[in-house]
Write a protein that binds this DNA or RNA. Structure first.
Lengths: 332, 332
DNA sequence: GGGCGATTAGATAACGTTGTCATTACGAAA
DNA sequence: TTTCGTAATGACAACGTTATCTAATCGCCC
């Protein structure tokens, strides 16, 4: 910037004004400065600018997900990016994977880079550690799962009603022995979806079948195994509710391995690519992950401007997508 | 930092030394400083640190892809993240979408934030504009597609041999009227895959069928339409080579719509989720996108340390995954 | 006991930028 | 002609950190 000023024959401050398109610089000087900047391949340094500016906003946000390559999260990411783009904001994205310590490490890594906000899907049991960061002015918005021990904006799907809808859909077709396959109950989404399943079962007068409930299932392969175990049991289910997209995929595989994809009903939570191309098509309760991302980003930008608004939980509705697998009657 | 120094009763520089775990500070003072930092919720500011440090490395890289939610790119992203993590580096990710101006905008946005490197899949025809940035010390590594008009490290799949392998696989089964569906020839991957197709066709003595070659297909829906048109033509193909994952998905849909998924053979380039669960399973030439990401990141970090090494193109091999759709014989 | 090197600590300037205030020039109004 | 307001420009300090250099302290050896 000093060099540009020298070449244009103006002061440092004038270059700064031109770069930031502030008013109060004559056309002549604007031209000179721009030409000099071009000639010298000048690039404005946002990090230095940010250091000095009074608002101290970096126009940067950070995303922390279980896995950026999970199709659900990459769609949320996409939705966030759309809104961030409108705000001229760049987006960090990182995966926690199975490592709980990494959630905190990522928060620190982003905080040190002075992001304006973090949008995250919590994986650790407890988010109280974030109080420390919030005192430093960090904005946090949660997606998919509600935080524990920390009050903040949050965007979630209607997990319980959605799961009840899915389960009810199967019950209405006459199924009674409906299985539930889901993640650990410490994951809020998994426990809410289980609650919806349990509620639908009891309100339909179906007994609870402890042997048909498989929890702590985290991966596609684990789901395949869990469903195989269900199918091979002496009293197998006639229908399955799979509480997450990877689990649904694993369930499809298990049903195919046993040749039961046309005899045992299946409804999944979360849509997934090619669900409509399978035979039978997989009936799912579809979330709108892109909209969830957009909503989360909007909330983040509002809160960056107005940090003291009361926090809220926003629920994005899900909907049943009927494709065949959920409409298989019992007893075939 | 000033406050921490005051509370600990030491100088600014001593705090800096402790924060950066430099040697030459007595245990007593290290303890005092750490306690003071804790008490004041101190967070080291990497942006300011970077401004002053001599290496001027931000431990930040930027990714520019067609679409972060495309499963291929999100896997590449994941591979890059794995390596970045080992280097304590944070990762920006952004999508170009269909907007060519955005590629340059993103490069500028990342450059202004002083990323150490950009890993990108080029979409614009010409990357000469990057010369300007490289003069400023920016490291660029390309993935998936080779750049034009700009010499840089690049990690690609063996597109031409892979496409020839796929096409040859069909020809060996006795197919002659093999169709090609791919993206615009300006996309290097698409043109290389077309070249592999053409080479395999001619070396098998098959004539070129201009009516069976559909180019400029970019989306799943466009692929469905293109394949439907092929199937509905007076002389339809007996086999189809789909040159990219979205196109393969669209082709599957089209075949299903016409009930031809068991009579017309299909081989796709790129694997995709649930390809094995479809009926028939979809035979593909599978890339290893995660390994491509890891390789690209490794190259980036090498070049950050040694900018003057000669550039190279690295080819990650692909392999045929046989699942059924590609083994359908002609004439059924 | 004096000299010396090694170790630890601090004072100061600088990184690239912008906020604040002072200065200049110019015209219009009195 | 003088005064005043306004617009354009610049000088300088500061943002939070680290590089460099100097000073102080210590132990050790002759």
């Amino acid at each position: 910037m000093r060099d540009v000023a020298a070449l244009a024959g103006v002061s440092l401050k004038t270059v700064s004004r031109v770069v930031n398109s502030e008013r109060g610089v004559s056309e002549v000087l604007i031209g000179k400065v721009k030409r000099a900047a071009d000639e010298l391949d000048y690039r404005h340094d946002l990090t230095a600018s940010n250091l000095r500016r009074s608002d101290r906003k970096t126009a940067t946000i950070g995303l922390i997900f279980e896995d950026v390559s999970n199709p659900y999260f990459s769609s949320v990411h996409r939705g966030i990016e759309e809104v961030a783009r409108e705000h001229g904001t760049a987006v960090f994205a990182a995966s926690v994977d199975e490592n709980p310590a990494r959630e905190r490490d990522l928060v620190v890594a982003f905080t040190q880079r002075r992001v304006d906000a973090i949008i995250m899907s919590p994986t650790v049991r407890d988010q109280t550690y974030l109080d420390h960061e919030r005192r430093g002015g960090l904005v946090v918005v949660f997606v998919d799962r509600e935080p524990r021990g920390f009050d903040a904006d949050c965007v979630v799907t209607d997990n319980e009603p959605g799961a009840a809808l899915a389960t009810g859909h199967l019950l209405k077709r006459g199924h009674i022995r409906v299985a539930f396959v889901g993640d650990f109950e410490t994951i809020t989404t998994a426990s809410q979806r289980h609650a919806g399943y349990a509620k639908a079962m009891s309100s339909a007068g179906a007994p609870a079948f402890p042997d048909l409930v498989r929890r702590g299932v985290r991966t596609k392969d684990a789901a395949t195994e869990a469903v195989l175990a269900l199918l091979d049991a002496p009293e197998p289910p006639t229908a399955i509710f799979a509480a997450q997209n990877l689990i649904t995929m694993g369930a499809v595989r298990a049903l195919q391995l046993r040749g039961l994809q046309h005899s045992v009903a299946l409804v999944g939570f979360d849509d997934f690519s090619m669900a409509d191309a399978l035979v039978p098509g997989v009936t799912v309760v579809a979330q709108d992950p892109r909209e969830i991302g957009r909503m989360a980003a909007r909330l983040a930008f509002v809160r960056i401007k107005a940090p003291d608004l009361p926090t809220a939980v926003y629920v994005v509705p899900s909907g049943l997508v009927i494709r065949g697998s959920g409409e298989i009657p019992p007893g075939r």
